[in-house]
């Protein structure tokens, strides 16, 4: 009886200490891991829609709550500001629209002074390869640069993809969603 008690106590102690150590390390590395993930996953997209900044948009990112999703969980928006001499002149953030086969995530870069697009980049989609997936090509995303975001964008402003109307609409819808987000949270983005 005494022996079993000893086995249980020692093993429980080892496991317990291990649990504490892991919780501590997890807590310690949570920040750097989030940074590393965002840097590796989002940086290429941010880099392609913003230019001319002298800060680290990933490091200076701001996030704020923007309501709840359909399960009632809070959703937060992450905004990557591009700064020059400490002043934010453009922001990049993700918006989404519905394409042919599901949501299309688009990283949208906007100049906050004149409300013009500095570029877009599709970060996630499930469109048909060779057809809808051509939204990834620079020939499609390039005409978005310089478009005015004071009013809703339509298909006529850019070069729609032939045979992939729904995918084109999805991207345009994402950009228009970004326009609304910007109008609503401009103060929080540019501080």
């Amino acid at each position: 009886m005494k022996e079993i008690a000893k086995l249980v106590v020692v093993l429980a102690l080892i496991c317990g200490i291990s649990g504490f150590v892991l919780a501590y390390v997890k807590d310690l590395t949570a920040g750097p891991i989030e940074y590393a993930k965002i840097k590796n996953v989002k940086e290429p997209a941010v880099h392609s829609v913003l230019s001319g900044y002298d800060n680290d948009p990933i490091k200076d990112r701001v996030s704020f709550p923007v309501g709840n999703d359909k399960y009632g969980r809070p959703v937060s928006l992450v905004v990557f500001p591009a700064k020059k001499d400490g002043k934010t002149y453009a922001v990049a953030f993700e918006a989404s629209g519905v394409g042919y086969k599901g949501p299309i995530g688009v990283m949208v870069g906007v100049d906050v002074n004149d409300n013009k697009l500095t570029g877009i980049s599709v970060v996630s989609h499930s469109e048909t390869p060779g057809l809808g997936a051509r939204i990834l090509e620079s020939g499609f995303t390039e005409p978005f640069r310089g478009q005015d975001l004071s009013k809703d964008l339509t298909k006529d402003n850019i070069q729609a993809l032939s045979g992939a109307t729904l995918s084109t609409n999805g991207v345009v819808a994402a950009v228009n969603a970004a326009r609304e987000t910007l109008a609503k949270y401009r103060d929080k983005m540019v501080n």
Partner: peptide, 29 residues
Amino acid sequence: PSKVRIAAFIVVVATFVVVVELTMQAYFY
């Protein structure tokens, strides 16, 4: 105790492995 040594060893090894994994994820993504 020698009866639970394998379990104890594995817990110790696993702890260090998770530490390495988290560190690597944070700094060598």
